[in-house]
Amino acid sequence: MQRIRTFAGIAPATIMVVCFMLLPILIIVVYSFLEKNPYGGVRPELSFEAYSRLLLERDFDDNLSFNPSYLLILFRSIWVAAVSVAACVLIGFPVAYYIAMQPAERRNLLILLITIPFWTNLLIRTYCWILVLRDTGLINEMLLSLGVIQSPIPLLYTEGAIILGLIYTYVPFMVLPIYASLERLDVRLIEASRDLYASRIGALRHVVVPLSLPGIVAGSILVFIPCLGAFIAPELLGGGKNLMLGSLVQLQFSTSRDWPFGSALSVVIMIVVMLALLFYARNARNSGTELVH
């Protein structure tokens, strides 16, 4: 009976995740070591082909050689995701801080204002940026009519556009957790620190930021992971000229019909994500807060 009580709280969520997430992931891991079936799916034969393809390729002359294509795509995706996370922290922290110091009812209003854009579909929101960024878009037209530029500058279909779209999509995932940890911040701590450090920045650095770290960590994870696998923003705003991981994986499960390779890529993504989590966990531990208990 005691045992049941101990696990009663954690059980429902855990069972859900184990049955409908862990099990599927195991299927994916198994798939990555099998041979592909030409029309999608796998053949039950052990093969390491999917992993060797990540680094090596049989080129057009049938020689096995090092192939940097996939590494390039991997690093590009990690880079774009990391920049997006950094930008989200820089934007999200001040906003969360600002919201947290408003009177209670205005705080709730502002938090709701942050979530309202999500009532419109992600595709549409991303599409709206096309209207802003393209050659005949809002920004270019404005700059042209002001005489700042003579011909439209290419804003759309660039890496910057992808990052802008990712930030736009995921910054609320940063603001909400930071806000959640700042909101319960004890004002007296800041007052005390102001007395001690006598500067606003000092108080911020030594008191507010450390206290909001769990929120920043949670937010970074929430932003980093979807950015790593994103493909709506890269395809709509990046013009699809340079593949990102998300599109590459999707390609394997659709037109390329190479499920083992798609699974192997997914395993790689999961490893990158876990490394990122470990990195955060260590950082968080060093600064006195832990991500993983």
Binding site: T6, G9, T14, M21, I25, F231, G262, V292, H293
Partner: peptide, 28 residues
């Protein structure tokens, strides 16, 4: 809950759905 053992494991388990790209979750 002070008596709950293996908290890191449970914690990691709850975060698991985050670690998988959507397309993979979808197919799996």
């Amino acid at each position: 809950n002070k008596s709950l053992p293996r908290k890191p494991l449970f914690n990691g388990m709850l975060l698991l759905p985050l670690m998988v790209p959507e397309i993979v979750t979808a197919v799996a």
